[in-house]
Write a protein that binds this DNA or RNA. Sequence first.
RNA 1: GGUUCCUUAGCCAAGUGGUAAGGCAAUUGACUGCAACUCAGUGAGCACCGGUUCAAAUCCGGUAGGAACCUCCA
Length: 444
Amino acid sequence: MKLYNSLSNKIEEFVPIVPNEVSMYVCGPTVYNHVHIGNTRPMIVFDTLRRLFEAQGYQVHFVSNYTDVDDKIINKAREEQQEETVIANRYIEAYQAIRDSLNIEKLSATPRVTQTMPEIIAFIGELIDSGYAYLVDGDVYFRVSKVANYGELSGQNIDDLQVGARIEENSKKENPLDFALWKVTDMGIKWSTPWGEGRPGWHTECVVMINKEFNKHTIDIHGGGMDLKFPHHENEIAQSEALYHTSIANYWLHNGMLNQDGEKMSKSLGNVVWAKDFIARLGSNVVRWLMLSAQYRSPLNISDDTIETAKTELNRVFTVLKQVDVKAQREQISGQESFDQEAFDHFIKAMNEDINTPNGFMEIFETMKVLNRELRQQPNDWNRITGLRNAIIKMLTVLGIVYVKPILTAEDTEQFNAWEAARLAKDYQKADEFRQALSAKGLI
RNA sequence: GGUUCCUUAGCCAAGUGGUAAGGCAAUUGACUGCAACUCAGUGAGCACCGGUUCAAAUCCGGUAGGAACCUCCA
């Protein structure tokens, strides 16, 4: 398996820390609102990566967090005159519902900031003790200049960053690039620490959760959206380098952004599409197919055209599978358990090139073509047909797409037979009626 | 101003030195009672200019256009 590592900007052969095991972490949402479809791209991409590993015998330990302490949550809570936990819990539930509806495999753990506070406070304490963090009026900031490789991930150097950095008014920081580990606060949820009451900064939690959930300082894969590269991931690395001399993960993976009709989705443009609405409209299968139609690092544009194309393509895949299953039942073929390993291997090989889903799709289409030919060959080679069918279904499983096999009822079978009989008798009006009935049931 | 990246047929999208995958749409043919499904065929020389090379969409330089990031947006 080859993966593009954002840390080296190169495609590298994936070598796990522990043979046949993969530890991966993806930054989760700040739960202050529903998520939009852009947020579903990392969910789908990294779930697909996980499935790809699992299809090859890896055991995957996959953790993603919930940021349930944040200014945005506090603001939302004030707006609604609710407790912050009510807000957070509401959107955590909503997020989980999205995961379920997108057929995302169950995560190993979904830690929350509020449940990780002792560790976060201890971690910040260590950074202070070791001189990597300093106190100003109860706030704690990370001293960026003390980390030699700061900027490694985003490919920037500290001097360039400083030129571009917006200088905050009345900044208490030694350096504008220094980031907050702890903020003193008088509003919202807060915890008491040796240096004062307040709440943690965003960048610390992920590091602490990784250390805690995996019980080690270096994991295999850390993923997230391209926009998190700087400063969030850069800052995670800085903290980990400071205390543990490791960049947390051997492979850093970043998915490209999602655009709507060529524009970035944003509230100001008024083109935000909520994930729940999008999934309700198109269904999980189409959404996943659409999200995987471009390689994960490329930007992906969502438009009516790309949505229609995804629907049509996926429909073709399901059509041939359905035709196989209907025909097998009508001809009472059973007991075939064959599997076309070669076709499946082609698919895996394509996918192993840095999750090259477009080439994975290509292998599905190629396999479909062979299957369509076989299905129209007389006599049918059911061993071959079943093997191809099962291979395609397994490919879809890696993509997280679910195919439901149609089960013919006695009535269905009768209608098929009647359709055929009417055709033979050249009673086309009657034939069309049966055809339409079967079509309405999605059987042809 | 800095950093990273992109520009491949009407549309989506692979390919990163050896002569352009796949899909959608279109179109021709076969199959069909008609149709759908399906199969077979048709279509680009890779933004532009210049360079390196026996050979470039692929490497280098430049031009034009576009995107993301530069303190908390996946």
